[in-house]
Simulated assay, not measured.
Amino acid sequence: MAAAGECKGSAPAFAEFVIVRHGETSYNAFRILQGHIDSELNNIGRQQAVAVASRLSKETKCACIYSSDLQRAAETAHIIASSCKITGVVLDPSLRERHLGDLQGLTLRDAQKQKPKAYKLFLSSRRDQEIPGGGESLNQLHGRCTSLLEELAGKHQGERVIIVTHGGVLRELYRRASSMASPEGKIKNASVNIIHISENCRNWSIHKWGDVSHLEETGANEDAFGGDNASG
């Protein structure tokens, strides 16, 4: 029998996005807010990238890979592309983490002391609050990343596509695809998350979330910073 939303003998009437959070960075390990800071993977992060790449190479072939152009995501994406034998990675700034303005490069503790106004706005429940110093609001982040995925869904109906991005972006994609405002717990480094988007882009559905079963050997650091609503 054909799966739900699929006609027998035809391509599925949706685009399947396999969305991976980048591997760990030293900023994650030291609990520093990154935002648009162009940090690289640390040794654990590279091991995590290799592990998720190995997993994806054994699954259904993916048509292409899109990634944030920030180094930590791009490096993860290139490791995946090599393992999956996919030529090229398309880098797109719409997949970047939320810009955190004056908070970038600070720990949460230092941010609270040194930039109290920005810190307060960052933790505010209001989604229209921009962060001083060029930072984005959650609405702005939501708009740019969901618009891109809908654009890509129009291009890749019936295909499986890998997206490599950041915790904040993943939270916004979850918000769009789910009736819940945000996922429970952290979105861990190198986790696998799968979203289907219908042909008309109206229907988003979550088919897997927060899967880190491939990290049994390298480890999914339970204490690693990032992937929740008080990080970036």
Rank of each mutant, 00 (worst) to 15 (best):
H36D: 05
T87A: 15
D38F: 06
S137K: 06
A53S: 15
I80E: 01
Q34Y: 06
S137T: 05
G88Q: 07
I86F: 00
V90N: 15
S137H: 07
L108Y: 01
L108H: 01
D69P: 11
E75N: 05
E130M: 14
S67I: 12
A77L: 11
A63R: 07
G134A: 11
T87D: 15
L103N: 00
R109C: 03
G105F: 01
S54H: 14
D69H: 12
L141G: 06
I80N: 03
I65N: 04
V90Y: 10
G35E: 08
S54Q: 15
K120W: 09
Y66T: 00
C84H: 05
R72E: 01
G88V: 02
N139G: 00
V52N: 07
S125W: 03
K115D: 02
I80A: 00
S137V: 05
R55C: 06
V89N: 04
I79E: 08
I79N: 01
I37F: 12
S68C: 05
R46N: 02
G133V: 11
G134R: 10
L121D: 09
K61Y: 03
N42Y: 05
V52Y: 14
E40Q: 10
L95F: 07
L141P: 05
Q114F: 05
R126D: 15
K115F: 03
P132G: 13
H142I: 00
D110R: 02
L41F: 03
A118S: 15
H78M: 05
G45A: 08
C64L: 08
V52D: 12
V50Y: 08
R144M: 07
L138F: 13
A81F: 04
A53Q: 08
Q48R: 06
T87R: 15
I44T: 14
S82H: 07
A81C: 06
A53L: 12
A81M: 04
A49R: 14
A51T: 04
I80T: 02
R96L: 09
